[in-house]
Design a protein around this nucleic acid. Structure first.
Length: 476
DNA sequence: GCTGATTGTCATCCG
DNA sequence: GCCGGATGACAATCA
């Protein structure tokens, strides 16, 4: 098409015809096939250079326009073209009065985000009527009111985001710490104020056949409990009277005996708690199995260990809470079962030992089927309890992490939206400048008769080799 | 009494 | 096939 244009319209001219030789941007020359073409814009050579630079970039900008989806800018640009008829710019004498005001700004200004400060609204008004200045004013309004400056706004966003995120991170961190602390504390002392699940009716082991212990279950009789105490220790379906009785029993636990009970569950082989207290004489008369015989000194040591641990943990708890714990803290269901069945090793080992060590431990004692089933249930439940805690901890951390990521993405999105807005403003302004330059180019071009070319009849087209041609619209 | 949070437990899947 | 970890679901408990 360009060749056709050249043929139809021999308007090839070099850049000298429009501007100083060799001063076109990027070395791209403007050519016409019209020998008589002459330039009337010698004093504006610099401006023309800039103009051609802008023209050279217009194709890239149009690509931006095509991809930015900004129909708004497109409409602006399209409506601008008829606003610059040849009649307005056709005389060279008009040039001094109408310097491309928008193009008086350097590109640094254009892209610096502060271009609007250099725009002469009145000048624009004269040039383009009311539409463009309104747009420019609108841009100014937007950027001066809702966003003091883009950079300031971005700084503010960054700072506020950082502050909020920092605050949120602190909150999340404190939550995690608090929760972990609670886990740890509960791991030590059990849930504060949480009465033991004596009333729980879901404690039957799947593998506990026959039922572990019950006043009605003579299978446990071999363990030589007092049936009343067994009923206290086993809570499955027990009536309220029994529950209250159980609580009373726990309340009546002396420290020494309680410690011994817990010690039995946590640190060492069980020794029946010999006490004159009612309800704690579970193992009175019980003949210890040979494998679980413990000396009196060992018992004393175990009790002392528990007492120290209890004192250590209780020193950190307010007195009122200590009283609550002292009245409500009791053994877990499995602990009570282990106590009732006289499992000869602590729950800690049942749960935490590796499978090999655990099996080795089992071989060291002669356990009944019921005891074995309970031990395995305790191990399974204990491990699952820890797993559930870990699972919940991970889930919580995952939620916190996702929240943090979400906040970051929101901030990033805000930044991108702001940058896009900024870019659109810049693009609109550049298009205004280019429209000015485009029109000005036409004012500079003259045919052999000294007549200017009409923008209504011609348009500039650039070939891949950088040559510009005046092409009649009829050739489009 | 209702509700949300917490915790333990079970069932199930998977390595 | 067993074991243990992970996890959803459910129930109990508490504030």
């Amino acid at each position: 098409m360009c060749s056709t244009a050249n043929f139809v319209l021999p308007l090839r001219r070099t850049c000298e015809a429009v501007a100083a030789p060799g001063r076109l941007c990027g070395g791209v020359s403007m050519t016409t096939m019209l020998p008589g073409l002459r330039s009337h814009g010698a004093p504006q050579d610099t401006d023309m250079d800039v103009a051609w630079q802008e023209l050279m970039a217009i194709t890239e900008l149009q690509e931006f326009e095509a991809t930015s989806g900004g129909s708004y800018e497109t409409a602006q640009y399209q409506t601008m073209e008829p606003m610059a008829p040849v009649g307005e710019y056709g005389t060279a004498s008009s040039l001094p009065h109408r310097p491309p005001a928008s193009c008086e700004l350097s590109s640094a200004n254009i892209y610096g985000g502060s271009y609007s400060e250099g725009v002469s609204t009145n000048n624009k008004d004269l040039m383009y009527g009311h539409t463009e200045p309104q747009h420019v004013q609108k841009m100014l309004h937007t950027s001066s009111h809702s966003q003091p400056t883009v950079m300031a706004l971005r700084d503010y966003m960054d700072m506020s985001d950082a502050t909020q995120e920092h605050r949120r991170a602190n909150i999340c961190l404190s939550q995690v710490v608090d929760r972990n602390l609670r886990w740890t504390t509960q791991g030590l002392t059990g849930k504060p104020g949480h009465t033991d699940d004596i009333e729980s009716d879901s404690g039957l082991s799947l593998d506990s056949n026959p039922p572990l212990a019950s006043p009605d279950n003579p299978a446990c009789g071999a363990l030589n409990y007092q049936s009343r105490d067994i009923s206290l220790a086993y809570s499955d379906g027990e009536p309220d009277s029994v529950i209250s009785k159980t609580r009373e029993v726990h309340t009546l636990y002396p420290i020494g005996c309680q410690s011994q009970t817990t010690e039995y569950l946590q640190t060492g082989p069980h020794l029946p708690c010999v006490s004159s207290q009612p309800g704690v004489s579970h193992f009175q008369g019980h003949t210890p199995r040979p494998c679980s015989v413990t000396t009196q000194s060992q018992t004393s040591a175990l009790c002392n260990m528990y007492s120290e641990a209890a004192m250590t943990s209780r020193q950190k708890i307010p007195l009122k809470q200590q009283q609550s714990i002292s009245t409500t803290a009791s053994l877990s269901r499995d602990e009570r079962r282990a106590l009732a069945l006289k499992i000869p090793f602590p729950m800690e080992k049942i749960v935490n030992l590796p499978v090999d060590d655990f099996n080795e431990l089992l071989t060291q004692y002669t356990l009944t089927d019921t005891q074995m089933a309970l031990v395995r249930d305790i191990r399974r439940r204990g491990k699952n309890k820890v797993a559930a805690q870990n699972c919940r901890k991970r889930k919580l951390e995952s939620i916190i992490h996702l929240e943090r990521e979400l906040n970051q993405l929101k901030a990033q999105r805000e930044n991108l939206v702001q940058e896009r807005l900024e870019f659109q403003h810049s693009l609109t302004f550049i298009k205004c400048c280019l429209a000015d330059l485009y029109a000005e180019v036409f004012t500079q071009l003259r045919d052999e008769n000294g007549q200017s070319y009409s923008m209504d009849e011609h348009f500039l087209q650039q070939t891949p080799d950088g040559q510009f041609y005046l092409v009649p619209h009829t050739m489009q």
